[in-house]
Design a protein around this nucleic acid. Structure first.
Lengths: 231, 231
DNA sequence: TAGATTGTTAATCGATTAACAATC
DNA sequence: TAGATTGTTAATCGATTAACAATC
């Protein structure tokens, strides 16, 4: 049972800190304050300082944080200090795009292989990365000690694929399939369900008042006024 | 100022409820309890009941929820009761995959146009959807009353694109570019930053103990023991 | 009526923010 | 020393869970 003390939401902020620090180091900025990190990231300065102190005291009072030093620390906190080899399950539209995306845009992660069931795709390449038969997955995971996988297969196949890869050692799954995956204890799943992201955004895209009015016009149950978010 | 009372995290659960109800209706299941919805979704039954009562009393004590009725209510709550036309900014790998994905996998959202800057892409199609010049964006947004957009352009172009589309009426952005977008008040941005999702997952993929040990070996600052998540 | 399950209030838990002493 | 900014504790806020009365 890792990290009794640090929350999932906090951990999601660290890659954002890292990205900002990457930029600062590149721009040869030596020091940065929590206030400056705040305006770059959108998180409060207090929250940033709090997040960092979960792992140590990396700053200098009165001066701020050394960008190169803090960057190195965050890389180690996240676990990006050794190259992370990842596989992509599914070579469809999304799997292909994700393979390319991570190869070009993600400086800390390496997609080393793609797996698919379609014989027409096996043996082909996405850029330089081979598409293998899904039957080769167990051997590949074990010989290459793969711990992180991206699942981009259709909903109907996702659980089966999750079972397969976790059985052979995968500990973390970025799941793009629109299903809840059931995985053994100790395996982490992040859902990156694009349908849900987009649908929940629609809630915010139009005047709530109108929509909720429509909702209640057809609602037979009596509403107590304070359960409404308008007025 | 909409929804003083309901949180962003709660709203993200509604599309998941909807997906489950879609399946139940399709399977001709008439009634469902919060307990059953809980085991399907992974959220607690109490939380599901709480979420629903933000918008009304849709169930029957002793019996549960009528699946068709609840489904209709949730569609209206999210705002999916009229067709949502969406545009995709950027026809690169990711933009293309997202266009196809939403066309085929997202039953409630319609991608109606894609925009890009590359003259080599303009005039081509992604499946049946035309790729337009980015210069046509303002006119298109206004004439088609587009309120929701997906941004899948390179990081360097994302702010500029966000400025353009919000200026002409877009109220909600699903942002795949790895930058923090600054948008006018009242515009909502969901970040779907794949790099960050994957990097934060890596934190969970290996033994924390080892990593944190490495971290502190090179830390000069003295640590108070309780700030550590191990021992 | 007995059993089941909702709707809702109260209790708990966790995360964020505020405040400030420590200290560069 | 004066000014700035961290690290850390305390206060606040919000979200989740527990409990149970209402009621089908």
């Amino acid at each position: 049972m890792p990290d009794r003390s640090i929350s999932k939401t906090a951990i999601k902020r660290f890659p954002i800190y890292l990205r900002i620090l990457d930029q600062l180091v590149q721009r040869k900025v030596d020091m940065v304050s929590s206030k400056e990190l705040s305006s770059e990231s959108g998180f409060s300065a207090e929250q940033i300082r709090k997040d960092l102190t979960y792992f140590g005291a990396f700053g200098t009072r009165g001066a701020g944080y050394n960008t190169m030093f803090l960057r190195e620390k965050i890389i180690k906190i996240i676990g990006l200090d050794k190259t992370i080899d990842t596989i992509v399950m599914g070579a469809g539209n999304l799997g292909t795009a994700l393979t390319r995306y991570n190869s070009t845009k993600n400086p800390y992660v390496n997609v080393v292989a793609v797996f698919d069931r379609d014989p027409g795709l096996i043996g082909k390449k996405i850029d330089e990365i081979n598409i293998h038969s899904i039957d080769e997955t167990p051997g590949y995971i074990e010989s290459h000690k793969i711990r992180v996988a991206i699942v981009a297969v259709p909903a109907g196949a996702a659980q089966e694929v999750a079972d397969l890869i976790t059985k052979h050692g995968v500990k973390a799954i970025l799941n793009f399939a629109p299903v809840k995956l059931h995985v053994p204890e100790g395996v982490h799943v992040h859902n990156a369900d694009l349908t849900i992201e987009l649908q929940s955004l629609i809630y915010y895209s139009s005047a709530n008042e109108e929509r909720l009015k429509r909702l209640h016009q057809t609602t037979t149950a009596v509403q107590s006024p304070k359960t409404l978010s308008l007025e």
